[in-house]
Amino acid sequence: MSESIVRYSSRSRARAIKSFLSNLLGHAGAQLGLLCLVFFLVLSAVPNILVGPLETVATATGDFLVPPSSQHLLGTDEVGRDVLNLVVHGARISLTIALLATVISLVVGTTVGITAGYYGGRVDVWLMRLTDFFFVMPSFVLALVITPVVLEVMGRGREILGFRPSLFVILVVIGITSWAFVARIVRSQTLSLKERTFIDRARVVGSSNLSIMVRHILPNLVPQIAANGALVVAGAIYVETSLSFLGLGDPLQPSWGTLLSLAQRAGAASTGAWWYLGAPGLCALAVSLSFVLVGNALDDTFNPRQRVIP
């Protein structure tokens, strides 16, 4: 599989991509996951068109904790806001945080993994010790202590890149605490790629280390990075939702986790307001499951393990 990516001829690459896509779409799980992801991406792309601007306490349109009705398809929350409105806007927050955190995580993980694998020796030993630390310490636990401290240092207030500071901190912290297993996988792939002849060839013609890593090794890692990236997104959603649930999110930009936190504080579970806690939870579940399914399908497609004939 990776051989076909090594060869740069655009026609063979196009053919490889085509056969890859048809294989991937052959997975029922991947179809379901992709469909679901497209749905949520549309939601998060144009929430204002679909449900109007985010409702606040001041612009709330309904009564308190009203069950679903034709007016409020998913009912209302404890201050009369429309839950559908909140959930659709929450999609944007949750997905953006998870995707950006994943980008950070993949960049860090890939850089550490390639560097450790390519240079080997002492660099490898120390980078892997660092990786070990992040591997055994769950992202959630690290984020739990780092986030409040960083927030305290920065102070709440101004937005960064359109994010309220707490969300920005959360996404950065998730990103820098969840790269360890990507680094491990990338490292082991790099180790085996390093031994291949085309790397020697690049070295002989005088390519620099950086250019070998970026031009020759990185393209071959794309399959692994993609498959694991999907799993990292699922993990990021989990961590973000949990952190927000514990009150580290931002009520002015409520993600699904923040909505669940608000629902918990409003006693939604004990008063039986199932719609209030049901919708954000199901959304988090659906998106996270979709990424897992797509990730598994990618992994299956890239690494066909089952031998059909002995």
């Binding site: 699922a234 989990y238 939702t241 949990s242 649930f245 986790g257 669940l260 629902a263 918990q264 939604a268 579970a269 806690l277 939870g281 988090a284 579940l285 996270s288 499951l289 897992v292």
Partner: peptide, 9 residues
């Protein structure tokens, strides 16, 4: 894929 606290709720 389900956050355990949501399962709890």
């Amino acid at each position: 894929s389900t956050p355990s606290f949501w399962l709890a709720m």
